[in-house]
């Protein structure tokens, strides 16, 4: 049953990816803006333009271009970036670790902040403190991530400059890393000096991404906790002599967490989308920042590569959430 489900999911994923590829391929070719014109210096002749256009295959029809591109992709060749003239796959995979680290850090922060808010709010339900948590939640939710980013830059980069607000790591540092996962590799190599520098760079953009998600997690989890707290098995646990803290965390939480988990999966993909603007804001060298540059330069192969990669990440996250759901809910485990 499990394997059937997995194979079916991989099938639908493939269809989704093809759909995404077609849409992106057509859209970026239909919108105005010519990549070739942007590459050539002013004063280039018509003949120069035509030669370069032919070189990149842009003189062919869109379906023909698509076929050529798909043939390449199936052999692991996503084309060459027009602006940097490097293989798209190398560029994209080079930036992927930075964005993954940022997204995961933001997700962890959101879960911690939102989880604490929900548990505290449930523990203090009916008091003024619960009202205060609800208000804070509402505020966090009604401001988008990039505005939180601006606020954090002003607060911790300008007024009280305690964190780095630009880049991924201090440029003058010597980096011994062999992978792109700086945050994990610095820990692995026990280079805590580098780790501290990287965290100091990541903390603000990650927090900007985390705040709205934390609010959503906090709100939904508190709602399901409060509903669960009325159920009979929670009451029965009280008669055994357990206090409020135990009842909330051991009896209610494992059941209340399921709807939140589904939502986190959906919201995590939004968070990855949010990295595009937040990375730009903090000059963080990730995929999002690269995506904006690619769009500005009309670097068609690079845009295609990035979008496909984002689509792969989105579907992978959803798959992981589905599997986790099965693990956490014993009722789904046995037919």
């Amino acid at each position: 049953m499990f394997w059937q489900k997995l194979i079916a999911r991989i099938g639908t994923t493939a269809v989704t990816l093809i759909g995404v590829a077609v849409i992106v391929f057509v859209v970026i070719r239909v919108v105005p803006g010519n990549p070739v014109a942007m590459m050539l210096p002013p004063g280039a002749t018509e003949a120069d333009v035509a030669r370069l256009t032919a070189l990149y295959g842009l003189d062919k029809s869109i379906p023909a271009q698509f076929l050529i591109w798909v043939q390449g992709v199936l052999q692991g060749d996503f084309g060459t970036s027009i602006t940097t003239r490097q293989p798209v796959l190398d560029l994209v995979l080079g930036r992927l670790p930075a964005t993954l680290e940022l997204s995961i850090m933001a997700l962890v922060m959101a879960v911690i902040i939102g989880g604490i808010a929900a548990l505290t709010g449930t523990r203090l339900r009916g008091t003024k403190a619960e009202g205060a948590i609800d208000v804070a939640n509402g505020m966090a939710l009604s401001v988008p991530d990039f505005l939180w980013g601006l606020a954090l830059i002003l607060l911790f980069g300008v007024l009280v400059p305690v964190f780095h607000i630009s880049g991924r790591v201090t440029p003058s540092l010597d980096l011994p890393f062999t992978t792109g996962f700086y945050l994990f590799e610095s820990l692995f190599r026990l280079r805590f000096d580098l780790w501290a520098d990287i965290v100091s760079h990541m903390l603000m953009p990650a927090l900007a991404l985390a705040i709205p998600l934390a609010a959503i997690i906090g709100q939904l989890l508190k709602q399901s906790l409060k509903e669960t707290m009325h159920l009979d098995y929670v009451t029965l646990s009280r008669t055994k002599g357990y206090g409020e803290n135990h009842v909330i965390t051991r009896e209610a939480l494992p059941n209340a967490i399921l709807p939140t988990l589904t939502l986190v999966g959906v919201q995590f993909t939004f968070l990855i989308g949010g990295t595009v603007i937040v990375e730009r804001l903090f000059s963080y060298e990730g995929l999002g920042n690269m995506a904006i540059d690619a769009v500005i330069n009309r670097d068609l192969p690079l845009i295609q590569g990035i979008v496909i990669l984002f689509a792969v990440i989105f579907t992978a996250v959803n798959l992981v959430v589905d599997l986790l759901y099965t693990v956490l809910n014993p009722r789904l485990r046995h037919g």
């Binding site: 009979d232 029965l236 008669t239 357990y242």
Partner: peptide, 28 residues
């Protein structure tokens, strides 16, 4: 006080609930 009361009741008394379908924690 609440904590002492819970402990005393937990040791001396118990409940047989009404609905067995909802009185056991589904995830334990």
């Amino acid at each position: 006080p609440p904590a002492a009361r819970r402990k005393r009741v937990g040791g001396l008394a118990a409940l047989i609930p009404q609905d067995p379908l909802t009185a056991l924690n589904p995830s334990r």
